[in-house]
Simulated scan of single mutants.
Amino acid sequence: MRLALALAALTLLSACEGGGDPVESALRDTAAANHSAVTRETASAEPSHGTGHTAVSAGDQAFKASEAAMHERMMAASGGTIDEAYIAKMVEHHRGAVAMADVALAQSRDPEIRRMAQTVKDAQTREIAEMQAWRPTGQ
Score class of each variant (00 low, 15 high):
Ser48Asp: 10
Glu84His: 07
Gln118His: 07
Ala123Thr: 02
Asp21Asn: 15
Thr137Tyr: 03
Ile128Met: 02
Ala26Gly: 09
Met1Leu: 11
Asp83Thr: 11
Arg40His: 15
Val91His: 07
Thr119Ile: 10
Ala9Cys: 12
Glu67Tyr: 06
Phe63Glu: 09
Val103Ala: 10
Glu130Trp: 10
Gln107Gly: 01
Met74Cys: 07
Val120Pro: 00
Asp21Glu: 07
Thr30Pro: 06
His71Tyr: 15
Met100Ala: 14
Ala85Lys: 08
Asp29Leu: 10
Thr125Pro: 02
Asp21Thr: 10
Arg95Cys: 14
Asp110Gly: 14
Ala15Asp: 07
Leu105Phe: 08
Asp21Arg: 04
Glu130Pro: 00
Leu27Glu: 09
Val38Arg: 00
Cys16Met: 05
Met70Pro: 07
Ala4Tyr: 00
Gln124Arg: 10
Ala45Ser: 12
His94Val: 08
Gln118Gly: 12
His53Phe: 15
Ala55Phe: 12
Ile82Trp: 02
Ala97Ser: 10
Ala55Pro: 01
Gly80Asn: 14
Asp29Val: 15
Glu84Ile: 01
Trp134Arg: 01
Met75Tyr: 02
Arg115Phe: 06
Thr39Ser: 13
Asp21Trp: 02
Ala133Lys: 05
Ala62Val: 03
Leu5Asn: 07
Arg114Tyr: 04
Ser48Cys: 04
Glu112Thr: 08
Arg95Phe: 03
Asp102Thr: 03
Leu3Ala: 07
Arg109Thr: 04
His94Trp: 00
Ala133Thr: 02
Arg114Met: 04
Glu46Val: 15
Ala8Phe: 03
Ile113His: 01
Arg114Lys: 08
Ser66Pro: 03
Gly59Trp: 07
Ile128Cys: 05
Ala85Ser: 12
Met74Ile: 05
Thr30Gly: 09
Leu7Lys: 04
Arg73Cys: 00
Leu5Cys: 15
Arg135Cys: 14
Met116Ile: 10
Ser78Thr: 09
Arg114Trp: 05
Ala97Trp: 00
Asp21Phe: 03
Trp134Gly: 04
Asp102Val: 03
Thr11Asp: 13
Ala101Met: 06
His35Asn: 11
Glu112Met: 15
Trp134Thr: 06
Arg73Val: 08
Ala97Pro: 00
Arg28Ser: 13
Ala101Pro: 11
Leu10Met: 08
Leu105Tyr: 04
Glu41Gln: 13
Leu13Val: 14
Ala43Cys: 01
Ala55Cys: 12
Glu84Ser: 15
Ala88His: 00
Pro22Thr: 08
Gly20Ala: 05
Asp122Pro: 00
Gly80Met: 08
Ala69Ser: 14
Ala77Glu: 11
Val103Thr: 03
Ala4Met: 05
Ala99Gly: 05
Met100Ser: 13
Asp83Cys: 09
Asp60Gln: 07
Thr30Val: 12
Ala9Ile: 08
Ser108Arg: 00
Arg28Glu: 09
Glu24Thr: 14
Glu130Ser: 13
Asp83Tyr: 02
Met100Asp: 08
Ser25Tyr: 06
Leu3Cys: 11
Leu10Trp: 01
Ser44Thr: 11
Val23Gln: 07
Glu127Ser: 01
Ala8Ile: 04
Asp29Ser: 08
Thr137Trp: 11
Met70His: 05
Met1Trp: 02
Gln139Ser: 15
Ala55Thr: 03
Arg2Ala: 15
His53Met: 12
Ala6Val: 14
Ala85Pro: 01
Ala15Leu: 05
Gly19Asn: 04
Glu84Thr: 10
Ala37Glu: 09
Ala77Arg: 01
Thr39Lys: 15
Ser14Glu: 09
Met131Val: 10
His53Leu: 06
Ala68Gly: 05
